[in-house]
């Protein structure tokens, strides 16, 4: 029933191309965590930094600057209501089993990898609940502790979370990198592997072919010239 409804919703969204949806998402957790996000379609426009007590615009640069109304005040009010709801729901759900959603991860480079050129590997972990997840990187089966970072948690439409871990690296022939994700819902870590297989363009045969062709044509021209000259002498 719910799945069917979601599929229908997805179809409607896809078919109507000029159909846009704005969303405000407020969230809080037991350990004094709180979050407030402004979303446009699947894009996050802004979130509230509760420590700094300010709005943080996260719209991509190429989209220009959208004008947003101040959201910090609304976020504080939402946080207050959120805590109240959380207290009530904790009692209501006390006898329900814990909800665990396992993560799904993907590993990919930030830009096309070229040998000996600095790059960033990104591990995207999505679809999990609750936070946190732990992301471990290895290079040729050796743990990497430096050069990796993890982002804040972002909400998905279905209420689960996603996060990004980044690793700075320099691709070298034959290196094998992997990111392992640990989460409460996983029996064992979920590992994704990425091989450094940078293909050099095979210019050699082309150059050989080109030079050969040029020499052939030059030889042909020389032959024509001397043939004509010989006939003239006769």
């Amino acid at each position: 029933m719910e799945a069917l409804l979601r599929i229908t919703l997805i179809c409607v969204c896809v078919q109507a191309k000029d159909y846009h949806k704005y969303g405000l998402i407020g969230a809080c957790g037991d350990a004094d965590q709180e979050d407030f996000i402004v979303q446009f379609d699947d894009e996050q426009l802004a979130h509230v930094d509760f420590k700094e007590q300010k709005d943080v615009i996260t719209l991509p640069e190429f989209a220009g600057q959208a004008v947003l109304p101040p959201i910090y005040v609304d976020a504080k009010r939402a946080e207050f209501n959120c805590k109240a709801y959380l207290a009530v729901l904790r009692e209501v759900y006390a006898s329900s089993p814990e909800v665990l959603e396992p993560p799904w991860s993907s590993i990919y480079p930030k830009s096309d990898p070229q040998l000996n050129l600095k790059n960033t590997l990104i591990c995207h972990v999505t679809g999990f609940f609750p936070p946190p997840v732990r992301v471990l990187w290895t290079k040729n089966n050796v743990n990497v502790t430096d050069g990796s970072t993890i982002s804040r948690y972002y909400p998905n439409k279905d209420g689960t979370m996603n996060v990004f871990s980044r690793l700075s690296f320099i691709p070298e022939e034959g290196d094998i990198y992997s990111c392992s994700v640990e989460h409460k819902a996983l029996q064992q870590p979920q590992t994704r592997t990425w091989d450094v297989e940078v293909k050099q363009p095979s210019i050699g045969p082309s150059v050989f072919c080109g030079v050969g062709l040029a020499l052939g044509l030059l030889g042909f021209a020389t032959g024509v010239f001397f043939t004509a000259k010989g006939n003239n002498c006769n």
């Binding site: 000029d18 949806k21 704005y22 998402i25 969230a27 037991d30 959120c82 709801y85 909400p155």
Partner: peptide, 22 residues
């Protein structure tokens, strides 16, 4: 200790003609 989280979604959908859904 169990950790729990609560989320609240307020959504407004628009097309070029105006509001579509809330």
């Amino acid at each position: 200790a169990d950790e729990h989280a609560f989320q609240q979604f307020i959504e407004c959908a628009f097309n070029s003609q105006g509001q579509v859904d809330r």
